[in-house]
Design a protein around this nucleic acid. Structure first.
Lengths: 214, 214
DNA sequence: CTGATCTTGCACAGGTGTGTGCAACCTAAG
DNA sequence: CTTAGGTTGCACACACCTGTGCAAGATCAG
């Protein structure tokens, strides 16, 4: 929606600075969820005042940050599927973790904060739907639990992932260990025994735990 | 430690107002974790200024609130034990839930906030130790998972309980349903399959899911 | 009733944060 | 080079919070 009559193209450094602001915000909010615009702008090599040339408010900045991140996750997860619901769930766990692992604290604050519904209901809506579908299919197949509503189970699965996120923020957890924990915790919430969960892990090591080829 | 020479007993309404402040704080912080002293004092029928007659600072108020709550939970949990680690874990889940169910949001903010370590390492330290012991014993018995460090499993079990707490804050969950969810989620994190978890629930319904006799 | 205990109401100091306005100043586009 | 696009640095207004001081009033103990 081009509203004003541009007599000249926007300067190229504008977009660059905007991106720098988003990057800086991601990094700073990853360290301190309540980082002020001042420190974010400084980290981007700009002034607080300049931020308002790119974003109407602090909230708008963070919201865009969250949406970009959510879109990234959604894209990463959409790139791989499996017909087996249990394996698919494990796969989702791995993909999400890989994409989020380096911005754990930031993810945590978004997912625990007021942006939660906006993000989970927005770009990540399809992901939730996929989890619910997997849970339901697993239940019908006999692999997953049938004692709880699939919607609730999906929430517990997601909650288990968030628990791992919490744990990984408190005590350092490596990338590989994080993957394993997310998958095991998720399958546990789905109703698998720990042996079954490990069987899944072992039977599909290539897709679940091994590093992607460079 | 009686520091000043009291020529007269303290007024009886002082203690009452102090308790009212704690109650109001519990209620208000249950609605808004960042409730100001102003609204808390008002809810207690007092002025913000009067608060400082009872507590040296806002932080001290909240800290005392958290410690009182933690002590309550610790006492409730200490009143009942079982030698079977799996059943004991389920029992702990039930007892904690019953004690916390009516202050879910408040509990959530304490447990997710900076007071976490102070509380979990303080009055609730023994509870964590008990969970770790149960997890370890369950692993040795063959009932619980052995693929993860007991300390990590304990964290996952606690995390599962917190997930249920989150879920119950978002969508209303009855007292009985909460109990069931906490236990099932906890045993799932321990490594039981959903059928095994339900078997435990069924075999000990009296102690796990039924209301205590009045 | 008397007086210590508590509460009130107001004021103030100090802090932190967001959002705006504006003149001066760089810097890239043409 | 010219000029619009972008940034700076300063100013201010505003909101909100905590913590304190102090005089005046209310309230309970003895």
């Amino acid at each position: 929606m081009p509203e004003g009559i541009r007599v000249r193209a926007p300067r190229s450094d504008a977009a660059k600075n905007r991106a720098a602001l988003l990057d800086a915000a991601r990094a700073e909010l990853n360290r301190d969820p309540d980082a002020s615009l001042d420190v974010i702008a400084a980290a981007a090599g700009l002034t607080r005042r300049a931020v308002y040339g790119h974003f109407p408010s602090r909230e708008a900045l963070i919201a865009e940050l969250a949406e970009v991140g959510a879109a990234r996750v959604a894209a990463a997860v959409d790139a791989m599927h499996d017909p087996d619901p249990v394996l698919d769930l494990a796969l989702v766990g791995r993909l999400v973790w890989d994409d989020v692992e380096h911005v754990r604290a930031m993810t945590r604050t978004v997912v625990r904060g007021p942006l939660r519904d906006q993000v989970l209901g927005g770009a990540l809506g399809p992901l939730h739907a996929r989890i619910v579908a997997d849970v339901r299919l697993a239940a019908e197949t006999g692999a997953g639990r049938t004692d709880l509503d699939p919607e609730v189970v999906a929430r517990l699965v997601e909650g288990a992932a968030f628990s791992v996120l919490d744990e990984s923020v408190r005590t350092p957890v490596g990338r590989a260990e994080g993957r394993r924990l997310v998958i095991l915790a998720g399958l546990g919430a789905l109703g698998l025994s720990w042996r079954e969960a490990n069987d899944v892990l072992g039977a599909h090591a290539a897709r679940l735990t091994e590093e992607a080829e460079a």
